[in-house]
Nucleic acid binder design. Structure first.
Lengths: 354, 354
DNA sequence: TGCCATCTTGACAACGTTTTCATTGGATCG
DNA sequence: CGATCCAATGAAAACGTTGTCAAGATGGCA
């Protein structure tokens, strides 16, 4: 029964074909020395003729690592932001002979479950971009680190919940995104255009709104400029779908029209918010300015082209993949890298009309 | 040296902790019968306490399959079309306890190389959406099938190059997309609106343009309506990036303004083409109608909302994943499924003005 | 009481590698 | 010419499972 499955050519078969021992074939495959040219050639021919490919599983089993797979945890690849990161990670991984296991943590799934799976698959490294991490998830990270499997995470600077992983700071790679500063710059820009009543379309829950660094940056700038923060201009709990922005905008408009600018949690939301404003006959940017976050590819083709805060996505993915691969090769002190967020002014924002 | 890596808890350790043999633990783990309640409890406790997780690699090594991984070959996850498919595949896979290895075949990479990697990783199944398949790739597919690893592929109906894999038709799952009919419907719609000079922004090469089913459908409808196909309204070789549509539109406009409608290879191109038209002060749909393909999420939020041909993406991904998983469970006759393409009329198309 | 059937358990080979150790044979050197 | 060394090779253990087989224990039945 065990033999019913057709299997790949094995070292043993090559050995038999070439009339040598398994060890010798292994030596040839791995390019070790101490093999005579004559034998090497014979073995190489057999390998070619029988189309031998080393069994990665067996290799990894004996070495306890080297599956040549890395896990990538994103919130949702259908979201262009994560898609771009995923592309970059896959790209670097591929170039270094690694495969990427894709994990979509949205759909209300437990990060821990995914990490468990990755541990079971004995991945050589794990990259995480999905932000929030439940306590069980953190436990899994600890287990990974105990087993000396490198972990890299990208997160927002100043998030209070980062504290849950503070004790890991020295052991994991960190890619820190400065949404806080980005948000301040963006808000300052809007304020400089004369906007005073700025609405916020927010993806997460209200309780997150209270502690979100980008919101803190927003409020801070308002305060500094003597502007009042208005609770009623905030729509929370919208989620991350493209439609979330439209829903949020409708909700906002149903409450009030007393605002001259809107900040969306990200470009995806901003884009659909733009559509709603248009349908409602509200001119952007003449009547309302719209600001996004992330600067996804699509946002330069919206109407009007979207003003937004650029967040480096490819760089993020590349950094994470490179970090993992270098750590896999040789464990080094962990690295913390911070990427800035920059304002990209396009045409969805303008001076407030009197 | 072999023991330097920290390893996961093993069956043996559980066995020792529970004072039973490895076989018994294995029986408990796999829920087999013939284990006394007392022993079962003892073992289960040890498993919990030592946080045992079965080593997938070892399992797969002995069974020659059951890595519980499937490979997904897409052209580019950063493209929303593929991202949506990938999400659906990952979703179904996850629900069935499978992990997804993501392979991005764009960037001029050889499909065969990816397939080789997947073979080496001994995936339990392979889903392919990246269309074109080089001869070496086909060879890899054959090798997969020989080893009884299910393969499912999604492709366009009537593509001539499908012939290269005709001999596999009975052995692989096929998800066939009817761009041909979709294109006919779309073109008929434009013609019915009075359009006679219809431009085409085409991603692939000119030689592909000659044999592409959707182009054939386009030409067929033109001919049927006594309209002439104009070579000079076709821009080829644009690629699949979001910017491709803008580039194509600029190229087209630099040649002529004598057209009243544009069909783009897909929505991504259509969206950036819209932006260029806007910049050039050309009204859509009053002066020029724009038609896309695929109906990605973004296209309902463009300005104006994009008329397009809906292609089922989630269904595609779900079908592929489900097919693979059912075939992994028990090999059955392969399935061919055809999904229709449907016209979605929004506001980027209108009756041609006199 | 004795025998057979059934339930419970353990020993062991196998999966395809890598790696350590042992063996061979020829070359080198005094 | 004998001792020594090293290159070339092979044998075998180990990685963590699964599955087969055999053995021991238990209970039912005649």
């Amino acid at each position: 029964m065990l033999l019913e499955v057709k299997r790949l050519t094995t070292l043993r078969e090559i050995a038999r074909a070439a009339g040598v021992s398994v060890s010798t074939v292994s030596r040839v495959v791995n390019g070790y020395e101490h093999v005579s040219d004559e034998v090497r050639l014979r073995v190489e021919r057999a390998i070619r003729e029988l189309n031998y490919q080393p069994n990665q599983l067996a290799r990894a089993l004996v070495s306890g690592k080297n599956t040549r797979q890395i896990g990538l945890l994103v919130y949702d690849v259908a979201n262009p932001y994560f898609a771009e990161i995923a592309t970059a990670v896959e790209n670097v991984a591929y170039q270094n002979g690694y495969s990427v296991i894709l994990c979509n943590s949205s759909e209300g799934r437990n990060t821990a479950v995914y990490l468990q799976t990755l541990i079971r698959h004995q991945v050589d490294g794990v990259a995480i971009t999905s932000g929030e991490m439940d306590p069980e998830g953190v436990e899994c990270l600890e287990r990974l680190l105990q087993r000396d499997i490198p972990v890299v995470i990208s997160r927002e600077r100043y998030w209070a919940s980062n504290a849950a992983m503070d004790h890991l700071n020295g052991s994991i790679g960190v890619m820190e995104l400065d949404y806080y500063t980005g948000s301040k710059i963006a808000t300052e820009y809007l304020v400089s255009l004369g906007h005073e009543r700025i609405a916020y379309l927010y993806s997460l829950s209200g309780s997150n709104f209270e502690i979100d660094p980008r919101v803190l940056g927003f409020k801070e700038v308002l305060a500094k400029n003597g502007l009042q923060f208005s609770e009623d201009l905030v729509v929370c709990n919208l989620g991350f779908h493209q439609s979330s922005g439209a829903r949020g905008m409708l909700e906002l408009l149903s409450r009030t029209q007393d605002f001259t600018a809107v900040i969306a949690y990200n470009d995806l939301l901003a884009i659909s918010a733009l559509a709603v404003l248009r349908e409602e006959g509200i001119q952007v940017p003449e009547q309302v300015s719209v600001m996004g976050f992330d600067n996804i590819a699509a946002s330069q083709y919206t109407y009007p082209p979207l003003t937004t805060v650029h967040v480096p996505k490819s760089e993020q993915g590349e950094f994470m993949a490179r970090y993992l691969i270098s750590q896999i090769k040789e464990r080094q002190p962990s690295v913390q890298r911070r990427l800035p967020a920059e304002l990209v002014v396009r045409q969805s924002t303008a001076v407030r009309k009197a």
